[in-house]
Write a protein that binds this DNA or RNA. Structure first.
Lengths: 242, 242
DNA sequence: TTGACTTATATGTCTAGACATATAATCGTA
DNA sequence: TACGATTATATGTCTAGACATATAAGTCAA
């Protein structure tokens, strides 16, 4: 179970080392917590320099497959099963990347003192000003999503000058404000009449909901709710894993 | 705009190089397509060996921030906004990680020759045997999700011996079969009567749907559809970004 | 037993070279 | 002009060292 390295081509040495270790981890031969061989042991086994095995191990550590501790060694990490990671950024980019015509429509934009509900949604305590934007994105003239967004002006004062009549707020924020953390919540709801009209679907039809909160170093930047037609839109994610 | 490196602490050199470049990319100073300095130029600028800048650039390439091309140089990549990454693995682990009591119930398990519909769903052409499993997951005795899964026995022959009466097929597969690629599709539907009964919700209530296909080196392993009560369950993802 | 000090060691970073390899650019030819 | 061969060059990988640093483990005293 350990001799055969079933590939016949010859990748570089450090990649082979990395793949060997990865396989042992993925097959469970080296379970979580297992201490993988020290660098000097791998150096002996593969007859190479330490930099070569170091590169292999560094990449495994970067991929969170192992954890490296000085003086102690390198250990197989528990797989991060419970956590879900979702990365979606910009609807305009998403649609144009699909080769479809992007359409944008500002439905309302209000600058106001934060209401209690606003403050709750943004998770801030102090009163301040916010911008509330509602808009619609479409792909090839078909409604794609409606967006309901709140921007904390005390975090993003520049946003007061943006009117979002042509550029969607998501794109604007992406280019003007670097974020450090985001949280997504996905759920499903039934379309109410207002939503149904905006998305051109029937009342009672299912909608996919994505709520996203974005922070920069513990400061809320924006909270956004995106509503997609549930039976037509699909959020596709493809990735490599282990 | 280029002198100050606002940090006062002294990280290692390659990390400083990496951070310097990353900052220029993220601020847009070096836009997508921009050719960043050659390794030998960075070597001159930072007065270090090539291996040091190579390590910095390799990590940036691994993070998909830059693309490296032999003879041509390293180029800032377009941000991968359009792509979504979703990582969900094991419902049992997910529920126990939340500190809730996990419950599992096998509703049906059938071993059969693959029907046309099965083959289509799995994306395979040859006839073969499959296992079809329907089961229910619950958290603290409340229905959490129903699972409808197809396993390709020609890819996972060992699965024939597993009866899934106690262990959910997702967990079993996770521990027995390493996968290399997965694709998720998220959508929303209205609960039909069978689903409504299994999830203990009203007919017509919204459901969150996750379809997942898993491959190992171009071979389909399994196709699974998970149905969650749309208004109660929430798929939460929190992550750091840049 | 506990706490403080010392030591051994695995990883972290770095160097100054080397050769391999893919490919952009150039040049020559049909 | 179009195509094929050559060359220059930036990256890819690797070596055999070096010193730095965090820390597990051992030592010794209170």
């Amino acid at each position: 179970m350990s001799l055969a390295t079933d590939a016949a081509d010859k990748p570089t040495l450090y990649k082979r080392i990395r793949a060997d270790i990865e396989k042992r981890i993925l097959t469970g031969e080296w379970p979580p917590g297992y201490r993988i061989p020290f660098e000097h042991e791998l150096v002996a086994r593969y007859r190479c320099s330490r930099m070569t095995v170091n590169k292999a191990l560094s990449e495994l550590a970067q991929a969170d497959l192992i954890e490296r501790r000085r003086r102690a060694g390198s250990f197989v990490r528990r797989p991060q099963h419970q956590s879900a990671v979702l990365k979606i950024s910009d609807i305009r980019a998403e649609i144009t990347a699909l080769g479809r015509g992007y359409g944008y429509e500002l439905m309302s934009r209000k600058l106001r003192a934060a209401t209690v509900a606003d403050r709750e949604r943004l998770g801030v305590k102090k009163a301040g000003k916010v911008i509330a934007v509602t808009c619609r994105h479409s792909a090839d003239n078909v409604p794609f999503a409606v967006e309901d967004r709140l921007i904390d002006l005390s975090s993003v004062p520049d946003a007061a000058a943006a009117d979002f009549s042509r550029e969607p707020p998501g794109s604007w924020l992406l280019h003007h404000v670097p974020w450090t953390e985001a949280e997504h919540t996905i759920s499903a709801i039934i379309a109410d009449d207002r939503t149904a009209e905006a998305l051109d679907i029937a009342i009672g039809a299912p909608c996919l909901v994505i709520d996203r909160y974005t922070w920069r170093s513990a400061r809320t930047i924006t909270a956004v709710r995106l509503l997609y037609p549930g039976d037509s839109h699909r959020l596709v994610a493809r990735f490599k894993g282990g």
